[in-house]
């Protein structure tokens, strides 16, 4: 049987209902967006179903969309059915204020470090993870560097303007109150320790 994107979509819709999941396709790869609390159920279904058999976790990473209110932090799973050679992307979104996601490390041993990495960079709290601590950054770090409110370059520099890089001054975070003090319009960093 040919495992097509339509078939996967149909199976998932039958299992979880019309309203729960949303689908899109980019470059031939089906991308499923599920509610955060269903991530394990969906993955288990994809794993166990006799025809779907998505039993390889290729990759797991976070993405930060500060403009999507209530679902700022995304977690992206790249799943792979190696027998049929079909890939699938599963996405879930959680609010930045309460980024709680169930861990997939019981299903895939590979998820252990990938989730630690995602926690390290995005602060996603993987519920039930056996050893959720930082992996690449130093343990003392008290912020999550890949979130978009931490611009890459030194904010006290005035000779550079982020407008040159297509996304407006200070990536739309000019006046936002961060955990580490206020970043003002001019990009000056006040109070709190400097962002490196």
């Amino acid at each position: 049987m040919q495992l097509t994107n339509e078939y996967i979509q149909q199976q998932l819709t039958t299992q979880f209902g019309e309203a729960v999941l949303s689908f899109e396709e980019s470059f031939g790869l089906l991308s499923v967006t599920a509610p955060a609390e269903l991530n394990l159920k969906v993955m288990n279904f994809l794993y166990d179903d006799e025809n779907l058999r998505f039993r390889f976790l290729t990759d797991l990473c976070g993405v930060h969309y500060p403009d999507q209110a209530g679902k700022e932090i995304g977690v992206v799973y790249q799943l792979h059915n190696m027998e049929a050679n079909v890939r699938l992307r599963l996405k879930i979104y959680v609010p930045a204020g309460k980024p709680d996601v169930y861990t997939a490390s019981a299903l895939f041993s590979a998820a252990n470090w990938m989730e630690r990495e995602t926690y390290d960079f995005y602060g996603i709290n993987f519920i039930g993870h056996p050893n959720l601590k930082r992996i690449l950054n130093v343990d003392e770090m008290d912020y999550f560097p890949l979130r978009k409110q931490y611009p890459l370059e030194d904010q006290t520099r005035v000779d550079k303007d982020d407008e040159m890089f297509g996304r407006g001054g200070a990536i739309g975070f000019g006046t936002e109150k961060t955990d580490h003090g206020t970043v003002t319009e001019a990009g000056k960093h006040e109070e709190g320790h400097p962002i490196v």
Binding site: C61, V63, A110, F165, G166
Partner: peptide, 19 residues
Amino acid sequence: GRTPYRLHFRRPCFIYYQA
């Protein structure tokens, strides 16, 4: 935009070193 919004590298040895 001009730059990737997000770029993630799937690094094989990061993943298998946990074994």
